[in-house]
Design a protein around this nucleic acid. Structure first.
Lengths: 343, 343
DNA sequence: TATTTAATTTTACGCGCGTAAAGTTTTGCT
DNA sequence: AGCAAAACTTTACGCGCGTAAAATTAAATA
């Protein structure tokens, strides 16, 4: 490989026979130069391994091509999956994803925003922690950098929100459970870290009442993101106490359901649809592991692909769109019933 | 908040009454200036919200404070958990973690290394994809930037390796299974993405032979990182075919075991230690979800905390240590038997 | 072919900070 | 108090690139 060592754009200008300002234009947007010169540049580029210094670029441009992705808890496969989708779309859109997890800690969430500020991102995609988030800090951040929120909607925060349609999804599942058996009891955390939980409870109650049934809600104690553990211990307790009004349990999310199923198993309760089953259990989210629970978990799936695609789209519009809209868009993506063995 | 707006170090020098070169020294290493001036700087810092421009810093320093973390598959909670630990230690060591996932794709792994190169990292912590990795590309990268590998050891690649002691761990589990019941059959993927699998098979065979038992290995077909799915389908097939030589199955890793347990459940096979159980199943890794399988999974746990701590330690030594050692260190951390209900 | 328009080159400055060199002040030590 | 060492200030240059302005060249239009 006789590839020359070219250190900077000056040298590459000499090497390629194109002036430096034109090269600068090219690297910023290859389509902004004449096709002929573009060809010439790219042919030269193939002959050496020059690559513009990203620090020098970012220092001098007011706006970088960085896009921050902030997630509340990356060790949760749900968010890992979301992050994966978002990363892919961000790269496809020509930006550079920077993935940060808050690991469930509001302080770290603030730190993450601070360190994002330092890299002057073109925009940020953020799933806030929710209840424990420092709202003021996030608002201040969103005022400075274009931010699209996903997963958890903090009313009024961010330029847009793209998320799951909890109301539609809850209706879907409650109606299915009622139709195929008896009305469900709702099982959730009393203090859920994620704000979707509240929307789900309310949608559950509304749907149940609309269908002429009495809603029953069992609330698990416990704080934080060890949700399976809470589902297990509190679900176990509730089962032993006979706290469930019906034998059909609709868990607020799949992680809770995973813990709950483990508890039911330990107590020797057969879960499923058959006549020989003591319980029916449904979840919500279509968590990556919900296909491998025992029994496999009937759930409402969030449309990962649509949500991730849409929120990247929104952000790109926000960044590249000339006219700035003042209205905060809220986009809700419908869920789908995913029927498996547990209900 | 009458905080002044200070744009650069020049202005902050005037504001704080400290010369710019000294400030530069301070920001590079707060301990390199006299305590008195350090106090003075920090008191001024509290009075405004100046923060050095990270791009300008990185452009001019030969070495940044960036530390890359490359993981083969972030949607795997095992790696998510590893990444979480590593991030924390990297921050504690005064560096800036940049987390990248290869999402199971060797091309993306190469891309990740390329984009890491662009940010001139002080060092990189890398868990290679393994079998599918482009060895030459990784070697070339390691030759240029200090790299400590973890999880998957590619012999000779990287300045050091920190990982799990597969041999010790396998001995531990095989001995336990033999002692507490019958000798296990080993269940693994024929073409595992991760190189640990081969070490585990060999250790299984060695230990079985040392104990005077005949090793039995069942190999699941299938490629890629959908390991639970492979464990489920291939495990199901093997169970139906009566392929297991014994009723004790030791799975090469917990994800495989999670799928296998789901298959056993579906087939109505009771898993556990009791006389009423048709199978005993053990895993390997102490995957975050192994506490919530049905039944809960007996496994050999990797010492997450020790591995993550140790590999960050190694990298920091490598970066900051004056004398460069030419010997490639290989550090293996012992596993622990984690007994639960499945075996 | 002449003319308008668009693209490129030349020249030059600035971004914010690292860092070297020489001079000055402060500190620690006897 | 005197002195050497350490820390600091002043001055000055460089990093690699963005970008503005004026001059030049190429392309598109008539």
């Amino acid at each position: 490989m006789g590839k020359q060592k070219i250190q900077n754009m000056e040298e590459f200008a000499e090497f390629s026979g194109i002036s430096r300002p034109t090269l600068s234009k090219y690297f910023n947007d290859p389509d902004s130069v004449r096709p002929k010169t573009r060809d010439k540049i790219e042919r030269s580029l193939a002959k050496c391994n020059y690559q513009p210094n990203i620090f020098a670029i970012n220092q001098n441009r007011k706006l970088t091509k960085n896009v921050g992705i902030v997630v509340p808890y990356l060790a949760d496969p749900f968010f890992a999956e979301m992050a994966r989708g978002i990363e892919t779309f961000v790269i496809a859109a020509g930006y550079r994803p920077i993935l940060l997890s808050s690991h469930g800690d509001p302080e770290l969430e603030k730190d993450n925003l601070a360190s994002l500020r330092a890299i002057k991102p073109a925009g940020v995609l953020m799933a806030p922690l929710g209840r424990s988030s420092d709202r003021a800090a996030i608002e201040a951040f969103c005022a400075d950098v274009p931010t699209v929120c996903f997963d958890a909607n903090i009313e009024g925060v961010g330029a847009a929100f793209v998320g799951h349609n909890n109301v539609q999804a809850m209706e879907l599942m409650v109606e299915y459970l009622v139709r195929s058996g008896e009305p469900p009891t709702f099982f959730e955390m009393r203090n859920p870290p994620n704000p979707n939980a509240n929307k789900r409870r309310m949608a559950y109650i509304d749907t149940m009442e609309a269908l002429g049934h009495t809603p029953h809600v069992i609330q698990a104690e416990g704080e934080g993101w060890k949700i399976e553990e809470i589902g297990f211990h509190e679900g176990r307790k509730a089962l032993i106490d006979g706290a469930f009004a019906t034998k059909t349990v609709f868990c607020s999310n799949d992680r809770l359901a995973i813990g709950f199923l483990a508890a039911a198993y330990e107590l020797g309760l057969r879960v499923g649809l058959g006549a020989d089953c003591a319980l029916r259990v449904a979840g919500h989210d279509n968590h990556p592991f919900s296909s491998f629970t025992c029994p496999t978990l009937t759930t409402v799936s969030q449309d990962y692909a649509a949500i991730t695609a849409r929120c990247v789209e929104m952000l790109v519009e926000l960044i590249e769109g000339q006219q700035q809209q003042n209205t905060r868009a809220t986009i809700l993506i419908d869920g789908k019933l995913t029927m498996r063995a547990s209900a």
